[in-house]
Design a protein around this nucleic acid. Sequence first.
DNA 1: CTGTAGGA
DNA 2: TCCTACAGG
Length: 327
Amino acid sequence: MGVKFKDITHPEKIEMKNLDNNVLTVDASNLIYKFLTTMRQGDGTPLRDLNGNITSHLNGILFQTATLIEQNIKPIYVFDGKAPELKQKTQQERIEVKKESEQKYQEALELGDEAKARKYAARTAHLNREIIESSKKLLTLMGIPYVQSKTEGEAQASYMANQGDAWAVVSQDYDCLLFGAPRILRNFKLTKTNTDIQLLQLQKTLDELNLTRNQLVDIAILVGTDFNDGIYGVGAKTAIKLMHKYGSLESIVKNKNYDLDCDVDEIREIFLNPDVVRNYDIEFRKPQKDKLIDFLCGEHDFDEIRTQSAIKKLQHKAAQTSLENWF
DNA sequence: CTGTAGGA
DNA sequence: TCCTACAGG
């Protein structure tokens, strides 16, 4: 879910063609979840192979990545590691929602209410080990690099962009600003008519709001994050006014007599100094054509012609980091 | 969500 | 050529 900063950020519009020649870190969980929720039939059934394994994510990763590479945009996928202990409450809530949705999905199916079925089916989507492992296997065969984070994927993806290994982070989550990503791309989609890709720049955002990154983190803590509840009735706009008036979180809490009921320093540490992997391999390699066909068409019943055409796009020469890998 | 066949 | 509708697995 992440911090609710929609009301205080002013994204710029950016077109896919302006991303040409850039490396992007992609919040893989965020993306795979999107594929799992949306790539479904009318009644909510996901794509499956003949053995019943879900394949929506494989389809999404293959065709999206192939088109990006063809357009000379290079995605590095970043997978979630272990979430901080503080996130347990958020995670437990999500599990409850999924259980409820599962029931409502079945009910809707029995009643023959397709629209309702689809709505609740989407909410039942979850990233189990099989989904993650098959996604990683696919990326390896495609020659696309991925990084396994120690903690939150957004933290790792943001760190890599901050280090200059990527131009921007692809994520829906405003948390990436807190994690220090210089640029975030939201609503990232390939569809021809998509003119909705949003570019959010950290420094520009801080300048507009007249805040430091540390203050922005404190504002998030007031509003509520995945790691704490925040103050009831305080949204992002109010929190900024308070920060401008009182200057620090400590001063706000004291003057307004708020009860934050969380370890502020621990949450600051999660955003400002996360445990990231520093020696990652982000080399783009040649796709392993035969193995891709075996995996997708042999094991998961993909159409061979469609798969071949995606592989052709992956063979775009710009996808290889260096010439040695190409020859 | 993404690719594409077929109609305007 | 652009757009809509629909299938993909």
